[in-house]
Design a protein around this nucleic acid. Structure first.
Length: 281
DNA sequence: CTCCTGTCCTGCCGGC
DNA sequence: TGCCGGCAGGACAGGA
C-alpha cells in the first residue's frame, strides 16, 4: 500500500516517540518477513538509543547511537502502531515485531502479507548497501529535475508508467501516484519513457512533486499527530483523481461520459493503470 | 544493459 | 451461506 507520502507520514508519526528513546527490548514474533529478520536483531537492539529517524525512498531509517541503522520497509500491507505507556496491548494477528521503549511506549509492526522488510546495517554500509545503492533521486529533493529525469529516461523503451515505478528512475512513486502524476501532467501512461522530454518532462516533474506533497499534507492535516485513535500511524482515507475510478467521469473532461466511457483501466506489466484517454496523450 | 515474468503472502470483494 | 477466482498500493531474482 504505502508509497512515499504514507511512509513519510508514518515516519513523522514515529518521530516524537522514537527520537531519543532507549530500546529496552526488541521482539520478533516469527523468523521472517520477505527476508529473514537478522538472527541477532533482538540482541543487537537491546539497550540501544535512537538518535533520529529519516526516510529514504519507501524505507524508514531509524538511526541508533553507535552507528547502526534499523531499517523498516512496509511492503504492501505493513503498518505501525504506537501503544502508549499504560495502554493495554491487544495483540493482533500479524503483529510480527515489537519494540519496547524505556518510556513505556511500544511500537508494533503488523504486516499480513509479509512483503515488508526489517533489517539492520552499519551506517557506513548505507551508501553501498544493495537496497540503497541503485536508488534514484528523492522526488521532493533538490536533485530531482526535468533534466535529471530525462537523463534517466533516455533510450528507455518501456512505458513512462513502468519507468515511474522503477526506483532507479525516481524513488517513492508507486502505482497510485504514478497514475495520479501522469494524469495531472496530461501524459499517456503508455507513452515510451524515452520520448518524455522538454516541456513534458517539466510538467511531469512538477506533477510528481505536487501529488506527493499534497498527499503528505493531507496526511498531516487529517491525522491528529499522525495517529489514529487505535494507535496506528500514517494511513488515511485519501481521494484520488483517477486511481480506482474506472468508468467515472474525468474531472477535466466536460464530454458526455455515456459516449466516452470515462476513465479507463488498463493493465501494464501486471499492474492496473487508470487514465483519461482524452486528457492524456 | 533492458525488459518481462514469476514470486513471496494474506485479505477482501464480487459472482455464482 | 459458502466457495472460488481475481485482485491488491512493492520490489526482488532470474531468464530472454
Amino acid at each position: 500500500m504505502p508509497e512515499l507520502p504514507e511512509v513519510e507520514t508514518v515516519m513523522r508519526g514515529l518521530e516524537p516517540f522514537l527520537t531519543g528513546a532507549i530500546i529496552t527490548k526488541a521482539q520478533k514474533n516469527r523468523p521472517n518477513l520477505r527476508i529473514p529478520f537478522p538472527a541477532t536483531i533482538e540482541h543487537d537492539l537491546k539497550g540501544r538509543t535512537i538518535t533520529h529517524l529519516r526516510r529514504r525512498a519507501k524505507y524508514i531509517l531509524i538511526h541508533l547511537k553507535g552507528g547502526d541503522i534499523l531499517v523498516i520497509h512496509l511492503g504492501m500491507s505493513g503498518s505501525v502502531s504506537i501503544i502508549e505507556k499504560g495502554q493495554r496491548y491487544n495483540s493482533q494477528t500479524h503483529d510480527h515485531f515489537v519494540l519496547h521503549l524505556k518510556s513505556g511506549v511500544r511500537v508494533v509492526y503488523n504486516d499480513p502479507r509479509r512483503f515488508g522488510m526489517i533489517f539492520m546495517m552499519a551506517e557506513q554500509d548505507y551508501a553501498s548497501h544493495k537496497y540503497f545503492v541503485h536508488l534514484g533521486p528523492e522526488p521532493l529533493g533538490n536533485d530531482f529535475s526535468a533534466p535529471i529525469l530525462c537523463a534517466r529516461l533516455k533510450g528507455k523503451q518501456a512505458s513512462i508508467k513502468q519507468a515511474l515505478l522503477d526506483q532507479r528512475v525516481v524513488v517513492g512513486v508507486g502505482n497510485i501516484y504514478a497514475c495520479e502524476a501522469l494524469y495531472r501532467a496530461g501524459i499517456s501512461p503508455m507513452k515510451k519513457a524515452g520520448s518524455i522530454k522538454g516541456e513534458k518532462a517539466e510538467l511531469l516533474v512538477q506533477a510528481i512533486r505536487d501529488v506527493l506533497k499534497r498527499a503528505i499534507k493531507a496526511g498531516g492535516s487529517t491525522l491528529k499527530d499522525y495517529k489514529h485513535a487505535d494507535g496506528s500511524l500514517g494511513y488515511f482515507q485519501h481521494q484520488f483523481t483517477v486511481y480506482g475510478r474506472e468508468k467515472e467521469a474525468c474531472q477535466r473532461c466536460d464530454c458526455d461520459i455515456n459516449k466516452t466511457g470515462g476513465i479507463k483501466r488498463v493493465v501494464q506489466s501486471g499492474r492496473s493503470t487508470f487514465y483519461c484517454p482524452r486528457k492524456q496523450n
